[in-house]
């Protein structure tokens, strides 16, 4: 049967993609951020997951407002990256695992989560930057797993509640663990933490709130479901709602997790950047 070995979180800021492309990892500005990743590389090299479930939010590449799914799951054999309009280099396609995708979709719809399935899905920086951060070199990295993108709507309110995000993750976890093949799965929760790009409050970052979220997501994610969506915007900033992806990831890991590593750095572009490695406890 499939096992979930753990969860990884990271911010997915486009500027990170540019920094990687330009070889700026060791620059003074970037080093405190990129230094958060080698312990995760070592863990991935040791465990070599077969599949990464990459939970992100599309920012206007794969979806537009004409048809905006609240929860979408990729069901393709590969996922292409495309021009996003502002200069981040386009990356080669990412191999998928369509058979596992359909197993997850079947399981979650049976579990009463209404899923949008996508046999074609262009993945944007929300998906690609975490892949680059966790598996440097991508296709040239022999350990890069097959990937399944899951996108949740944070573009347009109403966005899912924190409770729904956590429950989604629980259902996702059940679906993965019922897959008959002996594969190892890692779940990525990407985006966040606090940031706001728009309005007179642009540049808002809330270190205290981010650190509280990073603590509670390990010890008591249920407590975080008491935060309303409006309060999340107030405390995390208008785009800090991406924390929903972390909740989805956390739900899939089960009740107890072992926190192995974390890093937090302000600022990366306009964002409080959080990185975590959580291992599932059998």
């Amino acid at each position: 049967m499939a096992t979930i070995i753990g969860g990884l979180t990271t911010s997915h800021i486009p500027a990170v993609g540019n920094a990687i492309a330009r070889g700026q990892k060791d620059d003074d500005y970037w080093k405190p951020f990129f230094d958060g990743y080698p312990p995760i590389h070592a863990w991935l090299e040791k465990h070599k997951p077969d599949v990464a479930i990459n939970i992100y939010n599309d920012h206007g590449l794969g979806f537009f407002l004409d048809q905006m799914p609240t929860f979408a799951i990729g069901a393709a054999h590969e996922y292409i990256n495309e021009d996003e309009g502002w200069g981040i280099p386009v990356l080669p396609p990412f191999p998928g695992d369509a058979k596992l995708s359909w197993h997850i979709i079947e399981g979650m719809v049976e579990d009463e989560f209404d899923i949008t399935s996508c046999q074609e899905l262009a993945v944007d920086h929300g998906f690609t930057v975490p892949m680059q951060l966790f598996w440097p070199g991508l296709g040239d990295n022999p350990d890069m797993p097959r990937a399944i993108p899951i996108s949740a709507n944070t573009v347009q309110h109403p966005i899912p509640t924190l409770k729904r995000a956590l429950d989604f993750g629980k259902s996702l976890g059940r679906a993965i663990r019922s897959y008959p093949e002996d594969i190892k799965v890692v779940v990525l929760g990407t985006g966040g933490l606090s940031h706001q790009l728009d309005g007179e409050r642009a540049g808002f970052i809330n270190k205290e709130f981010d650190q509280m979220c990073m603590e509670k997501i390990v010890t008591d994610p249920e407590e975080l479901t008491k935060i309303s969506r409006h309060e999340l915007v107030r405390q995390a900033g208008a785009q800090g709602t991406e924390f929903l992806m972390w909740m989805m990831m956390r739900g899939a890991l089960g009740d107890k997790v072992r926190p192995l590593h974390q890093n937090y750095h302000i600022p990366v572009s306009n964002t409080g950047a959080g990185t975590m490695m959580l291992e599932c406890i059998e």
Binding site: Q156, P158, D198, R201, H230, V233, R234, A238
Partner: peptide, 11 residues
């Protein structure tokens, strides 16, 4: 409900 300097993008 006002959040200073913020326009929530809703329907």
């Amino acid at each position: 409900t006002p959040i200073e300097g913020t326009t929530l993008f809703d329907g």
